[in-house]
């Protein structure tokens, strides 16, 4: 009889752990909707189509670093023929804001803040600090 107490207690604990996300989300009133991102006002087109950027922007940045820093090839020719400097700060961050754009999605899906920001700074942040 005492065994049954432990076994059922353990089973209850297991079911609790297995359904943990439901309890946690219920407690935090989790918002299932993704963040509404503010798109840049002065640019209509990114360096690649939306579908590609969504899934592969990290790969693009890594390729840029490789070819710009290590292969001395600093200009990116986009799919529509436009050219951009291969630079996180000069290209990406000239339109996008780290906190308003990168971080919000990264936080939503729980993608870790990558080590880009160990060296790069958000220019918008720098302006605020200078004042």
């Amino acid at each position: 009889m005492r065994d049954k107490f432990w076994i059922l207690g353990g089973l209850l604990l297991f079911v609790g752990v297995a359904t943990l996300p439901t309890w946690r989300d219920w407690e935090t009133h989790a918002n299932t909707r993704p963040p509404a991102l503010v798109l840049p006002a002065h640019a209509k087109q990114c360096v690649a189509p939306l579908d590609f950027m969504r899934g592969s922007h990290m790969q693009l940045l890594l390729d840029w670093r490789q070819s710009a820093v290590r292969e001395n090839n600093p200009t990116y020719v986009a799919y529509d023929g436009k050219t951009y400097p291969k630079s996180l700060t000069k290209t990406c961050l000239s339109c996008h804001d780290k906190r308003e754009f990168c971080d919000r999605c990264h936080d939503y899906v729980g993608a870790r803040t990558p080590y880009c920001w160990n060296c790069h700074v958000d220019p918008a942040l720098g302006k605020g600090a200078a004042r």
Partner: peptide, 14 residues
């Protein structure tokens, strides 16, 4: 598209 997958997963557990 991680955003879509997160929506799907969150939708299931909530």
């Amino acid at each position: 598209d991680l955003e879509g997958i997160k929506q799907l997963a969150l939708g299931l557990v909530t």
